[in-house]
Each structure stands twice: as C-alpha cells, then as structure tokens.
Design a protein around this nucleic acid. Sequence first.
DNA 1: AAAAACCGTTGATAAATGTCAACGGTTCTG
DNA 2: CAGAACCGTTGACATTTATCAACGGTTTTT
Lengths: 193, 193
Amino acid sequence: MYKNLLAYINQYANLPLTSKEEALIEATFQPKKLRKKQYFLQEGDVCKNVGFIVKGAMRQYSIDDKGVEHIVHLYIENYWAGDRESSIMLTPSNYNIDAWEDTEMLIITRAEMLDLMEKIPALVKMIRLMDERNAIANQRRLSSTISNTAEKRYEEFADNHPQFIQRFPQHIIASFLGITKETLSRIRKQAMK
Amino acid sequence: MYKNLLAYINQYANLPLTSKEEALIEATFQPKKLRKKQYFLQEGDVCKNVGFIVKGAMRQYSIDDKGVEHIVHLYIENYWAGDRESSIMLTPSNYNIDAWEDTEMLIITRAEMLDLMEKIPALVKMIRLMDERNAIANQRRLSSTISNTAEKRYEEFADNHPQFIQRFPQHIIASFLGITKETLSRIRKQAMK
DNA sequence: AAAAACCGTTGATAAATGTCAACGGTTCTG
DNA sequence: CAGAACCGTTGACATTTATCAACGGTTTTT
C-alpha cells in the first residue's frame, strides 16, 4: 500500500529515506478507499486532506449557474488530489473532487504534512520540486488554452497524456479541455480523415 | 533601489532580515534598467535571470505561426518576471518578455538565488509562500478561462486587477484574456449600457 | 431479463468570437 | 511641426463553438 508513495518520494527528492523516516510516513498517511462516484471533497466544505492516489482515477470540477460541470483536473495513480486554495486559506472550496473509478488513497492533513516536513528533509525537497513542476505545467496549460484552437488543444492533450484518453470517457475529456462533448466528437471525426 | 525588494521579502516571509542578510541581498541582486520596448528575454534564449520589478511595467508573450502575440503575463511593480520553465530546465524559452514602460529591475540568476536560499531562511520561506500563492492564482485563472465567457472573464479581471486596466492599453488586456481587441471593445460597449 | 443510466454521434440552428478593412483621434518621434 | 505609429471603434462577414433534440448501442443496476 505504501510502496508507491515511498517510491514516489524517493524518486522525486532523490534523497533516500531512512527506515525511521519511512516508518513515520507510514504512521502518518491514512489509507482511504473511495467507491466510484464517492466524493473526496464537496463544494462548500473546507479541504482538510490532500491525498496521494495509489490506485484509481478521480476528477475535480466546479458546477456553474446552469448546473454544468467544468472539469479542472483529472487524476490517476501517483497524482495528488486536493484543493490547495481551500486547504491553505481554510475557505470553503468551490470544487468537487470525486472518484471516477474505485480508488485507494493515502491521505494527510495540511498540519500533519507541515509537521512531517520539519522532520523529513526529503519531503521538503519533494514539495519544492513538485511546486516547480506544477508551475511549469500550469503555465503550459494556460498558454495552450489561451493561444490554441480546440482542435490543437485536443491534439496536444492526446499526445502528452494518452493515459487519460484511455481512462476517461470523451465527455469528461471535452469538459477538461473547456469544450462540449459534441464539439469534441466533431473534432475527432475531422481528425480521422 | 533595494528598499522595495527588502520590504517585499520581509512582508512575505514575516521573518525579519538581519542587516548582514540585507547586505548579502544587496550585493547579489543586480540593478538593470530597461527602456520601453527593450527585451528582458527573447524567444529562443535561455532565461538566465529572474527579475524583481522596482518600477515599471512589462509583459510576457508568445508569438504564433501567424505572427500574432499571445500575452500570458503582465507585470508591474513588486512582481517577478521570468520564464521558470526555461530557467529551471535550461531550455530555450518560447516566450518574449519586454518592457511596456521604462523599467527598473533587480535581477538574479537561478544559481545565485539557490545560493542565497542556503544562507537566508527568510528567502526559502518567501519562495514557498510565493509558490503557493502562485499555484492558487493559476488555478483561479485556469478555472475562469475554461468556465467563463469572455465577458465574465473581463469583468472578473477588471474587478481583481484594476491596476492593470489603468496601466495597459485595451488591446494588451484583450490578448491577455485570450480574445481580440475588437471583441473586447464590443464587450465594453455592451457593459456600459 | 428488463429497466435505467450512460455514452458517443449526428443534424439543425443559434450564439459567440474572429477576421478584414476602414476611420478619426491620439501620442510619439525625428 | 509634420509624418508616422499607435489606439480604440465600427461595420460586414466568416468561422468556431454551443445548444437542443434525437438515436442506437453500451454498460450498469435492479
């Protein structure tokens, strides 16, 4: 259960964990299982935990005035799910996060994480690298969203994230790209020729 | 010249700098003046410096196949300008950054910054908080771009960033929002009624 | 096994936004 | 001061994307 998480940290930080540190991590992260469709976070609640996905698939989305879902993140194994703004600011979240497949996570509160970071240097390094990677990915996604047509955005996404294409149905991908399922269907039809 | 930067660090980190630390910072950050339209970073170059803006206004943008500029960031006093991806990965940047007004910056290389962080704890804390704030802002912007119409995006932007509206002309704001200047002109005309 | 929910597709039409060209009023610059 | 560059606006029209409704084929649930 903890194997993936420990491997993730080791790989990211490149600062081998001692067995004491490993034990501390195992004692702090709590396993949590979610059935398909079960909420991990519901709009209006404060996001208390961040979760590392050991197995499964999840999505994060907001719901607009008309009841339409807008998917902002998709997660699979080895991703971290949570709403940082809510978690840091302690404000009610604008997002829902739920399981798209049956999912196993390892969850931790922000306070626990801060505490662990004081004790385990590798975690500090990991967080910093994750933040950097994250900032870069966000920049790219934003750039793509602003500059490209729907068609090009889909191409780019399909090229860079084939795992998601296989794992989530088209209407979910469409929402993630900020277009309707009909438009995506037509784009794909075009592309096939 | 260094007053703004020191104040910025103190306020962000909330960990008062010693006078030795202040001296070290002043010795490391280099002043740099840019005339209006002068490049700070040009597409294809590796971004070697990040710069704190003491006075002035800048923009960051890419140029597409058709020669159209897509503005991804606007900066004014107390912002940091640079392309993180290029700077971290040491890859040629896809962006240009130039001065929209005559600008005074304090610049530092990534290596120097990493070195300073070893010596000044307040900087480590500042960077971490900036990363967090940044991640939150990116999330919001992305959400808004995906979920809202051009009109709502403009409203939100004008509400949250009135300084930019005053400082940059409309066609720059339009590009930043991912729409054409004509569309923005019409949106504003609508809104006036 | 039947019913319900889900999923992708298609057609017809509407709405949002882009493109191109032109204009008049600034502001910048030599 | 004169010409050039810049800026916002408008009109006519084209393109992209959304909306609504319907369908048949899955898969899931009961």
